[in-house]
Design a protein around this nucleic acid. Sequence first.
DNA 1: TCGTCGACTCGTCAGCTGCC
DNA 2: GGCAGCTGACGAGTCGACGA
Length: 267
Amino acid sequence: MDAIVEEKCQVDPLAPSPDPQTGIASSVGVTNNQPHLVTATNIVHLTLPSHTQAQVQSVIQPNQQSVIQTATNLQPMLSKGNVILVSSKPNSVIQTTQGNLQTLRVVEAGDSDSFSEEESPKKRRDLLTRRPSYRKILNDLGGGEIAVLPATALQITSGEGGQGIQTLTMTNATAGGAIVQYAQGQEFFVPVVAQSGSISGSGGEDQARKREMRLLKNREAARECRRKKKEYIKCLENRVAVLENQNKALIDELKSLKELYCQQKNE
DNA sequence: TCGTCGACTCGTCAGCTGCC
DNA sequence: GGCAGCTGACGAGTCGACGA
């Protein structure tokens, strides 16, 4: 399995300085099935060997020890304030974005909207209270920057062999943009939205058309909002997993230190 | 097979917020 | 202040599980 980590972001203040000639800040080689990490100023490539059963899954949190977790161990990998949770699913593509905080976002090939189903969204929803927007929350968490593509371009990541990133150009896109919906294994659905300035007709028709436009936009906004909400929930779940692992590691460390202390005390 | 129930998705409305 | 965007709340529809 191969995975790609793309970092489309501003410069991470915690990131090591890139090589002025190559632009590469750091490079971690692959040994013993460990991922291959190459960090550049704006691009981070994490290439997992095909025989590796691991995949980066979680959202990066700021100001935390950087860890790549495999099925069997926790493997410190990065010097940045990142935590990467690795599990075993094939055909993954990891995208990261960052504002002030570095984040990682995983796009599952063939399962772009998958996340834990252990808890029903209804229960989760009950836990959520007003308000800041999910975009704000995700930005605060460093986990949810949404890439905004121009209306005439669409980028697709297939995640196969690390060469699956393609950009499609929409020739019929208008200046006002077009709504593009894409689902894995399905064709593109590109509804054409009429421009408000081109409307001609009576006031009643204009009103009706405006209402239709508003409903259409709100429909799309609701979809987007729900998608962000899911992403936000996923971020929280991943964060919980990371913190639980950290907590477990700290407890183990404390236990071993206690044992060591008792041994030395008895001597 | 049918009715019920719970979970889930989707569209719409309403209220809030930020921007101009 | 008006407008657009975001999101909670609500209702309608669908689907699968389960018991009668």
